[in-house]
Nucleic acid binder design. Structure first.
Lengths: 237, 237
DNA sequence: TCAAAAGTGTTGTAATTACACCCATGT
DNA sequence: ACATGGGTGTAATTACAACACTTTTGA
C-alpha cells in the first residue's frame, strides 16, 4: 500500500462492497488404479458433517496461491505440492450462510508420502473419483472442472512424478493415466509414446510386486529437458 | 442468505478479512487481419491516464459473470457477448492503492456491430495485439493468459461467429486464425480442415470485396451439431 | 493480360491405432 | 505348465504439411 491518504482511498474504493474470499482445494491422489479425492467432513454449520473440499479463507497479505499452500500444509502436513488454479466460483448464493467467493485449486499428491494421521485427525478420507459422495454447495461442480483441467494438463505434460513414488514402472504410469482419463489405453502404444518423449530415465532395479517377470523402474530424467518445455500431446483428447 | 442469526454468522466468518473483488475484461476484436484489444485510459488515481483493461467491482448480489456482463454492457453498449473466465489474480500488491482481487475474463466481439461512440466516450481505443502499449499493474500478464486461453479454445472449437460478421468467407476465417495464433497458415489445408468439421453452411452469395474471383460466404450451420459437441483439433498446437 | 485470391488435387511423411507375438517367472 | 504382465514389432489407417495447378475477374 503506497497511498498514505486514507480519505482518498475510501473515496476510490469505499463505495464498493467487500467479500469473503476463500480457496477450495481439490486434492487428487492415486492408488490401486484409482484416482482418489481427499474429502473433509465440514466442521461447522451450515452443512456440518457433510463431505466437502478442503477450504479456507484468504488472509490480508497473502495471495490465493499462498493461501492454498498454507491451508494444504496446515491440514495435511504436505509441502511443495504441485498446485494449479482451476477457476473462481462466485455465484452469490453458492454458500448458504454468507456470500463467499471461492478460488479453486487442484493439488496432486503422492499417497505414499502421506501422513495418514494428520489426514484422519480432521476426519478426512480418500474417495475414488468414480465413487465419491455428493459434496456440499457447488463443490461437485468444482471437482468436475478440476478433473477437466487435470486431464488437459496430463494430455500435454507427463504427470507422474507428482502422483507416483519417485520411481515407478510404466505400467503404474499407464494405470495413473487410465485413472485420470477414465478409460483404458493400449499398453504397447502408451509405452512407446511416453518413452519417445525422452524425459524418463530407466533404472536397473526392477519391480516384481506387480508382475512375475518384473518391470524396470523409471524416474524423471532431471537433465533431459528444461522443466517447462512443451513435450507434445501424450494422449489424444 | 438463509441464516437469520447474525451473531452466529459473525462467529463463523467474522474473524476473516474481506476483500475488494473486481473483474477485468480482456476485450478481443478482429479487424483487418489483426487481433485487437480494447483498452481504456484509467480514469482515476493511482495510474490515472495509463492504459488498462476494462474493469469494475463485483457488487453484493451478482456473480463475477454477471459483473463482467454488466460492466461490458455499461461501457461498450454490447450485450450477449461471448465471455470466458481466464483466472483469478490475487497477489496482495497487484494494485498499488488497495488490495484488490481480480477475476479476469476475455470477451470476443465483432468490430462491425460495435458502437464507436460509446467506446470513444470513455477515451477507449483499439490496439493491435502485436503492438499494444504497456498496461498498468499486472494487466499485461492478464492479457497474455487470456490470449493463451483464447488460442486453446480456438484450437478445439471453431471461433468465428463470435468475432466475424454473421456471414464470412473462409479467407476471412483464416485471417482470424492467423491473427489469433500469430502465424500464417496454408490456405488450402485450412480450408479443407475447417470444412471437414461439418459445421459450416455455404451460402450462394459471394463476397467480392477481397478478391477478383469472389468467395462464397459461409455461416454456422445451426442444425449441424449440438453446440457443445467436440469437433476435434483445428490447428496443431 | 496478368496479378491475386479462390478453390481443388497430389504426394510424402508422421502419428495413431490395432494388433500379434515372444519373454520371464511365480504359483 | 500356464497365466500374467513386460516388452517389441508390424501393418493399416489417418492426419498433416507442402505445394502444384486450375479458375475467375477487376484493374
Amino acid at each position: 500500500m503506497e497511498l498514505n491518504n486514507q480519505t482518498l482511498l475510501n473515496e476510490l474504493y469505499g463505495e464498493h462492497p467487500q467479500h469473503y474470499v476463500a480457496v477450495d482445494c481439490v486434492i487428487f491422489g492415486y492408488k490401486d488404479g484409482d484416482l482418489k479425492l481427499l474429502l473433509y467432513p465440514r466442521s461447522f454449520e451450515p452443512s456440518k458433517g457433510n463431505w466437502s473440499l478442503l477450504g479456507g479463507f484468504i488472509q490480508k497479505d497473502e495471495s490465493s496461491d499462498q493461501a492454498a499452500e498454507r491451508i494444504l500444509k496446515r491440514t495435511t502436513g504436505l509441502d511443495e505440492i504441485y498446485m494449479d488454479q482451476v477457476a473462481a466460483f462466485s455465484k452469490p448464493d453458492r454458500e448458504t450462510a454468507a456470500r463467499v467467493i471461492s478460488i479453486a485449486y487442484y493439488a496432486l499428491i503422492r499417497l505414499d508420502d502421506h501422513d495418514e494421521e494428520i489426514v484422519h485427525q480432521y476426519g478426512a478420507d480418500w474417495f475414488s473419483i468414480k465413487d465419491k459422495p455428493d459434496l456440499i454447495f457447488d463443490h461437485d461442480e468444482i471437482v468436475s472442472k478440476a478433473l477437466a483441467k487435470l486431464q488437459q494438463k496430463a494430455g500435454y505434460q507427463l504427470i507422474g512424478p507428482e502422483l507416483l513414488p519417485e520411481m515407478f514402472t510404466l505400467t503404474q504410469l499407464r494405470g495413473l493415466y487410465e485413472a485420470i482419463f477414465l478409460r483404458s489405453m493400449d499398453p504397447g502404444n502408451f509405452r512407446k509414446k511416453v518413452l519417445s518423449l525422452g524425459v524418463l530415465k530407466r533404472h536397473n532395479k526392477k519391480d516384481s510386486t506387480e508382475s512375475k517377470k518384473g518391470a524396470f523402474y523409471y524416474s524423471y530424467d532431471e537433465n533431459a529437458e528444461m522443466p517447462d518445455k512443451e513435450i507434445g500431446r501424450i494422449i489424444k483428447v
